[in-house]
Amino acid sequence: MKEFKGNVLFLDRSDINTDEIIPAKYLTEIEKAAMKPHLLEDLQLDGFHPKADIKEKAVIVTQDNFGCGSSREHAPWALEENGIYVVIASSFARIFRQNMFNCGMLAIELSKDRINTIFKEFGKSNVQIAVDVETSVIMIQSKDQTKKIEFQISEFDRALIKTGGWVEYADKHY
């Protein structure tokens, strides 16, 4: 099972689509690793600099409808290649969300109010998040404060996470 903890990349925008996560021109790559340097390179967000801001981040906190657009698996793969195994948002595009779980990664949905509170309380500081998949608890920690937030995922999605993704789950159960 992957580690679901690390430094947070705050992306305060809704509707970040799969073309912004990994531009379509890189979809012909045959190695996942080839996508690594191109994660979020086309994302338009004031003050965001992909090369500098993604470095050493393991968790994304964002707004509504993350992963909208086409249904490519490449978007979670590009995140995974950069060591980002957790995305926390108020909503996800359905196929993107399932692709995350199929890759053994976490797509955690929290209420819009809760996401806005996280941005307000933590969005301007260096923050670490640790997610306990067993207890469905997110621990957010900055220099000045710690916050515990509970979340929900289905038992099937939890099983996908614990086995490392769909392929590993299928190998184990079928």
Rank of each mutant, 00 (worst) to 15 (best):
G104F: 05
N126M: 12
K143S: 15
R114V: 14
D144G: 13
Q128K: 13
T146N: 08
F101D: 01
E134Y: 00
G104R: 01
N116D: 14
K124F: 11
V131F: 02
N116E: 12
E121F: 10
E109R: 12
V127M: 12
F101S: 00
F119M: 09
R114P: 06
F122W: 08
I149T: 06
Q98V: 00
I115D: 04
N102Q: 04
L110W: 09
G123P: 07
Q98L: 07
E150T: 04
N102P: 00
I108V: 07
D132A: 07
F151G: 07
E150N: 10
F101L: 00
T117Q: 14
Q145T: 12
K120L: 12
L110R: 05
T117Y: 11
K148G: 01
D144H: 15
I118W: 09
Q141K: 15
I118A: 10
A107G: 01
T135K: 15
F122Q: 10
L110V: 03
D144Y: 12
V131Q: 05
F119A: 11
K120G: 04
S142A: 12
E150V: 02
N126Q: 12
N116S: 07
M100A: 00
S142G: 14
S111D: 11
F122C: 11
Q98I: 00
M105L: 08
N102L: 01
T146A: 09
R114S: 14
I140G: 11
G104I: 06
I149G: 07
T117W: 13
Q141P: 02
D144R: 13
E150F: 05
M139H: 13
N99L: 01
F122L: 13
I108W: 01
L106K: 02
I129N: 14
F151P: 07
Q141F: 07
K143Q: 15
V133F: 04
S136T: 13
I115E: 06
V137Q: 14
G123A: 09
D113P: 03
M139A: 10
D132W: 02
T146P: 00
V133P: 11
E150M: 04
E121K: 13
I129V: 15
S136I: 06
N102F: 02
L106D: 06
S111C: 06
F101M: 00
L106P: 09
M105F: 00
D132F: 03
D144W: 04
S142W: 08
A130F: 05
S125R: 15
N116W: 02
K112F: 01
T146R: 14
V127R: 10
K143F: 13
V137G: 06
F101N: 00
V131I: 12
K112H: 05
G123N: 09
G123T: 09
E121N: 15
T146W: 04
F119E: 11
A107R: 07
V127F: 07
I140R: 08
V137P: 08
A130E: 15
T117G: 09
E134K: 04
V127C: 15
E150Y: 03
T146V: 14
I138A: 03
F122P: 13
Q98F: 01
G104D: 03
T135A: 09
Q128W: 08
S111N: 01
L106G: 06
K112V: 08
T117F: 12
S111R: 02
A107M: 08
K148L: 09
A130I: 06
M105H: 02
S125K: 15
Q98A: 03
E109A: 10
L110Y: 03
F122V: 07
F101K: 00
I149V: 11
K124M: 13
M139P: 01
N116V: 01
G104V: 01
V133S: 11
